[in-house]
């Protein structure tokens, strides 16, 4: 167990290092000069050089990257912005705010959107998939399967406004989506995020319905499930205690793989409903060629995915006694 965590933490650090380096060097492939943004309309060349120097952009690339990396652990003194305490991710070129605090401010929004949606699509997807598998070949199965095909083709930016129009504007059933901190008002948090959750989860729900159905059908044909039936276990027990146990493993696996897509979906969702989360930061950072922000957002996104993947691996060990965490 201890070895498992040591190994995974080292692995995670390496992954994050690679991702940040790749982002860093890719950014310099974009032919745009952020120093210009600080320089104003009329920009004398010597000013530009000074700004570049203050931003540290006149140093060799790997030196810049090294400073950035070390800054995360030790903090650094940035000429343009002043002292930046550890963990220092620098300051935004575009808004001048601290990248780290901008991300921390918005992190709860994105986590609420993604994890809430995950709860919605996992529960709906798995339940409908189980019903479809239980009713294999019968009308309910066909309804579930057809609905999931339609669901899978619905896009967030298309469905989002429509749902808002009907549910919020016409019928007034729910408030317009926004973020209210859970700690302030749990109920408000819930009702204001319900629409984003449902809309973001539509595509995933469909996938999980289909997948749950097919892995359940597969599991039901397994030898050990047949044994359970051969020893007189009721069909419900066979379904819920034996087949489902085996079906959880591929579902958890796919969930681990889907996390990156889920964060991608959160970006679109935040755009669609103008929620001020990390996704919005990311989009703006790209638009503004805002290197520090872009790096920070990438790092935090990758960090979350890596951490959640470790959680997924721990889950495996709980589901399947054959899995040893080593």
């Amino acid at each position: 167990m201890f070895r498992f965590f040591v190994r995974r933490v080292i692995g995670a650090a390496v992954i994050l290092l690679i991702i940040s380096a790749v982002t860093f060097f890719l950014f310099y492939a974009i032919p745009r000069d952020p120093a210009r943004a600080f320089c104003g309309k009329i920009c004398p060349p010597q000013n530009l050089i000074l700004i570049r120097h203050n931003l540290g952009m006149d140093e060799p690339l790997f030196v810049q990257y090294w400073h950035w990396l070390v800054g995360i652990f030790t903090g650094r003194d940035l000429v343009q912005f002043g002292q930046c305490d550890a963990p220092c991710l620098g300051y935004s070129f575009a808004t001048q705010e601290s990248v780290f605090s901008a991300i921390i401010d918005r992190f709860p929004v994105t986590i609420s959107v993604t994890m809430g949606a995950a709860v919605v699509f996992l529960s709906f997807g798995i339940i409908t998939g189980m019903i479809a598998a239980w009713q294999q070949g019968r009308p309910l199965d066909k309804i579930a399967s057809t609905t999931s095909v339609i669901g899978a083709s619905l896009q967030i930016y298309f469905v989002g406004p429509i749902v808002v129009f009907f549910v919020v504007d016409s019928m007034g059933l729910l408030p317009r989506p926004s973020y209210i901190p859970f700690t302030e008002d749990p109920l408000g948090w819930f009702v204001h995020l319900l629409i984003p959750w449902v809309v973001l989860s539509i595509i995933f729900t469909a996938n999980y319905t289909r997948m749950t159905r097919s892995v359940m059908v597969e599991q039901l044909a397994e030898d050990y499930v047949r044994t359970a039936r051969a020893k007189g276990m009721s069909s419900r027990t066979v379904f819920l205690r034996f087949a489902w146990r085996g079906a959880m493993i591929p579902i958890v696996t796919i969930f681990g793989v889907d996390l990156a897509t889920l964060f991608g979906g959160a970006i679109i969702t935040e755009q669609t409903f103008t929620l001020h989360g990390i996704g919005e930061l990311a989009v703006r950072a790209v638009q503004n060629t805002d290197l520090p922000m872009l790096l920070g957002v990438t790092l935090v996104g990758a960090f979350s995915i890596v951490v959640l993947n470790i959680v997924v691996d721990v889950l495996y060990a709980f589901i399947d006694p054959r899995v040893r965490l080593a």
């Binding site: 030898d223 050990y224 039936r229 020893k231 034996f242 146990r245 006694p321």
Partner: peptide, 23 residues
Amino acid sequence: ERLRGNRVAMIFQDPLTSLSPYH
């Protein structure tokens, strides 16, 4: 269901796949 495993029982070829790995 009352008969299976009770009055009539069955053993299968491959005991590894035929036993539940989860219990």
